[in-house]
């Protein structure tokens, strides 16, 4: 009884950590531009697929991982430069549709560059399961959670402790005033796309030894990450992390106790409930500013 609950919890937290990273990606770009980047899921896929491809080509795993993250960040920066930046004066809705177009394009490209098959990445530290109170913990799970914690702490440090991070926040709160402070707001946008792409790639790579990846893997992961971000309150970093864990755990519990057929529905029920009952999300910014 306890062991199966623990088992569901472990798998929920694991996949939730990936949703959290993905949700953070959504939030960072949303903060910088008010655009919801629907190509966020494709960043996850590109990270995972390039890592697989590089590893299969004989590149040592650690190097393959680093290169795959860099490749994905480059894709993120290019996406901003080539698709978002030229349309900067368009409405936010137009920009969002551009990102949907970009996600379809990237999926198609991945199909051409790689293939339509499922791929697996070798586990980082073997496959010997660890017994935890009757539940099974794979070493890769520890990699996923450890990586997520480190990345989240680094992000928190960057946004709360460095002037560059605060400048990015300032740009999201008031782009005009940010410009008057000498902050290059175009560069902030570019950095936010690079950063979000990197986050997606990291999540995609560490989870691939557990879940496999394919050219269209980003759709679902992206939507779940989006649910996480909305649940936590779009633009709120801590909210995205909490939202990711909630979506992941709810999904795992539904799959375990009800039926795995309902697994994917959970995230969307959550997102509908949030939009209807608390549109600001759990930790959304409330209107506390004075005019």
């Amino acid at each position: 009884m306890l062991s199966s609950f623990l088992q569901f919890l472990i798998s929920g937290v694991t996949v939730g950590a990936i949703y959290a990273l993905c949700g953070l990606g959504f939030s960072i770009i949303f903060n910088a531009s008010h655009v919801i980047n629907f190509a966020q899921g494709e960043f996850i896929m590109i990270g995972a697929m390039s890592a697989v491809w590089l590893a299969d080509a004989g590149v040592p795993l650690p190097l393959a991982v680093i290169l795959a993250i860099l490749v994905t960040m480059a894709v993120g920066v290019l996406l901003e430069k080539l698709a978002v930046e030229p349309a900067r004066k368009a409405s936010v809705t137009t920009l969002i549709i551009i990102t949907i177009g970009a996600s379809i394009f990237l999926r198609g490209l991945a199909q051409e560059v790689w293939d339509k098959n499922f791929h697996k990445l070798e586990s980082f530290s073997g496959e010997t399961p660890i017994n935890l109170l009757g539940a099974v913990l794979m070493p890769q799970t520890i990699w996923v959670l450890g990586t997520a914690v480190i990345v989240i702490l680094l992000l928190a440090w960057f946004f709360n402790r460095t002037l560059e991070g605060k400048a990015m926040l300032a740009t999201s709160f008031n782009p005009l005033a940010a410009q008057l402070m000498g902050i290059n707001t175009k560069r902030v946008l570019l950095i936010s796309f690079g950063l979000s792409a990197g986050l997606g790639a990291v999540g995609g790579i560490v989870i691939t030894p557990i879940t496999f990846t394919a050219y269209d893997n980003g759709i679902m992961l992206g939507l779940k990450g989006f649910s996480a971000a909305v649940l936590g309150g779009l633009g709120n970093g801590a909210g995205a992390v909490a939202g990711g864990l909630i979506v992941g755990i709810a999904e795992a519990m539904a799959a375990g106790y009800l039926s795995s057929a309902y697994k994917d529905a959970v995230a969307f029920i959550i997102i509908l409930a949030v939009l209807v009952f608390m549109p600001n999300g759990l930790f959304g910014r409330k209107g506390t500013e004075r005019v």
Partner: peptide, 26 residues
């Protein structure tokens, strides 16, 4: 050239001290 814009335009959610620090960005 620094400007104090109309309507103050402080960074509302950031602390007073962070607002001042951002003034040194350049």
């Amino acid at each position: 050239i620094a400007q104090v814009p109309e309507g103050r335009q402080v960074f509302g959610p950031l602390s007073v001290e962070d607002n001042l620090k951002l003034g040194t960005y350049r």
